[in-house]
Simulated scan of single mutants.
Amino acid sequence: MAGQIAKRVPHLMTLADLSPSQVNSIVSHAHYLKHISLPWLSPQQRGVRASKLRMPSQSLFSKSIALIFSKRSTRTRLSAETATVLLGGKALFLGKDDIQLGVNESARDTARVIGGMCQGIFARVGDHNEIEELAEYSPVPVLNALSSLWHPTQILADLLTLHEHAALFSDPVEGIQNHNPKRLPQLPPLRPLTVAYVGDSANVLHDMLVTYPRLGHKLRVASPDNPKYRAPQPVWDRVVELGCDAGIWWGTDPLEAVRGADVVVTDTWISMGQEAEKEERLKAFQGYQVTEALCRKGGANTNWKFLHCLPRKEHEVDDEVFYGPRSLVFPESDNRKWSIMAVFDLLFGKWDLSAADGVFRQKSG
Results as ranks from 00 to 15, higher is better:
residue 280 E to L: 07
residue 282 L to P: 01
residue 285 F to Y: 08
residue 294 L to W: 01
residue 277 E to C: 09
residue 272 M to L: 11
residue 279 E to P: 12
residue 280 E to D: 07
residue 279 E to R: 13
residue 289 Q to W: 05
residue 298 G to D: 06
residue 300 A to Y: 06
residue 286 Q to E: 10
residue 273 G to V: 09
residue 274 Q to F: 11
residue 274 Q to H: 14
residue 295 C to K: 02
residue 291 T to Q: 03
residue 276 A to C: 04
residue 273 G to I: 11
residue 271 S to T: 08
residue 283 K to Q: 10
residue 299 G to K: 05
residue 297 K to F: 13
residue 301 N to K: 15
residue 286 Q to G: 08
residue 285 F to R: 02
residue 292 E to L: 09
residue 301 N to Q: 14
residue 271 S to W: 05
residue 302 T to F: 10
residue 302 T to C: 12
residue 283 K to Y: 11
residue 277 E to S: 14
residue 278 K to A: 14
residue 296 R to I: 00
residue 285 F to M: 06
residue 300 A to D: 02
residue 302 T to L: 13
residue 282 L to E: 04
residue 296 R to E: 02
residue 275 E to N: 04
residue 301 N to M: 13
residue 275 E to S: 04
residue 302 T to E: 15
residue 278 K to E: 12
residue 296 R to V: 04
residue 276 A to V: 06
residue 283 K to V: 05
residue 288 Y to K: 00
residue 294 L to C: 00
residue 271 S to Y: 08
residue 276 A to G: 04
residue 296 R to A: 02
residue 272 M to P: 08
residue 293 A to H: 09
residue 300 A to K: 07
residue 274 Q to L: 12
residue 272 M to A: 08
residue 300 A to F: 08
residue 279 E to W: 07
residue 277 E to K: 12
residue 288 Y to F: 14
residue 287 G to K: 03
residue 279 E to N: 14
residue 296 R to M: 00
residue 282 L to Q: 05
residue 281 R to H: 06
residue 293 A to D: 11
residue 282 L to T: 03
residue 272 M to K: 07
residue 286 Q to K: 09
residue 280 E to K: 05
residue 297 K to G: 09
residue 293 A to E: 13
residue 293 A to G: 05
residue 287 G to E: 01
residue 275 E to Y: 08
residue 288 Y to N: 01
residue 291 T to L: 04
residue 295 C to S: 03
residue 285 F to C: 01
residue 282 L to F: 06
residue 301 N to H: 14
residue 303 N to G: 14
residue 282 L to D: 01
residue 275 E to G: 04
residue 286 Q to S: 07
residue 297 K to S: 15
residue 299 G to L: 03
residue 276 A to P: 07
residue 274 Q to W: 13
residue 293 A to N: 08
residue 301 N to G: 15
residue 294 L to Y: 02
residue 285 F to E: 00
residue 271 S to A: 12
residue 287 G to I: 00
residue 301 N to C: 14
residue 299 G to V: 08
residue 289 Q to T: 10
residue 281 R to Q: 00
residue 283 K to M: 11
residue 280 E to Q: 05
